[in-house]
Design a protein around this nucleic acid. Structure first.
Length: 256
DNA sequence: ATGCCCTATGATATAGGA
């Protein structure tokens, strides 16, 4: 079984690429983030014609998450239990489903914007709440998605360029460690090039050609899933060319 | 060649991204 997580930065802007990627990559379960459209505006027909079921959760303009699967899509759950609000809204940032043997979450953690911004407190609250979804179970389980946190300094292209910013601060890393403390492992992908498995490169300043990247798209797997993983990699080819998302898919081969 | 920001919106600037 092949699973993947991919922040597509608008599903409508990216649908041709997503369609082509699915056609070429034999993927069973794909978790998407940043749909940037309402649930009813997701181009589901393009995905269904490839044999996938779609569970989406979006309200338009920003955020939005989905799970698409060709191995079953049951018990869909939208939002975290007790998910924190921002400006009194519960934003569409989390969705879960059971896909065959696997229980999986697709989440888009708030950016935080700046360590002094209220959005940062919201981010920490969201991360704290996210740990509560972990179930103590024999069944393969994963939280995947754009965590907007670099787990270690190895996950930043240049630590000195990211001093005092979000994504690398100790409280964010501690909050992420609290999640993995529930029995999950950050499955670190192998790098296909340049030694570091970054998953995001800003569109600006030639960041991708210069490999100024971050590893923020993660697969957090429980023991049953972790031991079944036979390979994990970043599909950095998908970041190339015109019309790419600023994130690349993270792909895991799982023997379940 | 991996190449000099992108997306959505009661839009013609602005917010958000990380």
């Amino acid at each position: 079984m092949r699973i993947a997580t991919w922040n597509v930065n608008s599903i409508n802007a990216r649908i041709d690429r997503v369609h082509a990627w699915l056609s070429a990559n034999d993927c069973d379960v794909l978790c998407l983030q940043e749909l940037k459209c309402a649930t009813d505006d997701v181009p589901v027909e393009s995905l269904r014609e490839l044999g996938y079921e779609v569970a989406a959760h979006g309200t338009g303009r920003w955020n939005g998450v989905a799970i698409i699967s060709r191995v079953g899509l049951d018990d869909v759950q939208r939002n975290l239990p007790r998910q924190p609000t921002f400006k009194d809204e519960i934003e569409p940032r989390a969705i879960a489903a059971t896909c065959g043997p696997l229980r999986i979450w697709s989440v888009y953690v708030p950016n935080g914007r700046d360590v002094d911004d209220p959005h940062y407190r919201y981010k920490l609250d969201f991360l704290q709440t996210l740990g509560e979804v972990v179930v103590d179970d024999e069944r393969p389980f994963a939280i995947t998605g754009d965590m907007n946190v670099c787990p270690t300094d190895d996950d930043v292209w240049d630590r000195s360029e990211w001093k005092g910013t979000t994504h690398v601060s100790e409280p964010e890393r501690a909050a992420l460690a609290d999640i993995t403390g529930h029995g999950l492992t950050d499955i670190i992908p192998r790098a296909l090039k340049h030694g570091k498995p970054f998953t995001f490169w800003d569109y600006r300043n030639l960041d991708f050609p210069k490999n100024r990247g971050l590893r923020i798209d993660l697969i957090l797997a429980n023991e049953a899933l972790r031991t079944a993983v036979t390979d994990v990699y970043v599909d950095r080819n998908e970041r190339k060319g015109k019309g790419a998302s600023d994130h690349a898919p993270v792909v895991a081969e799982v023997n379940v």
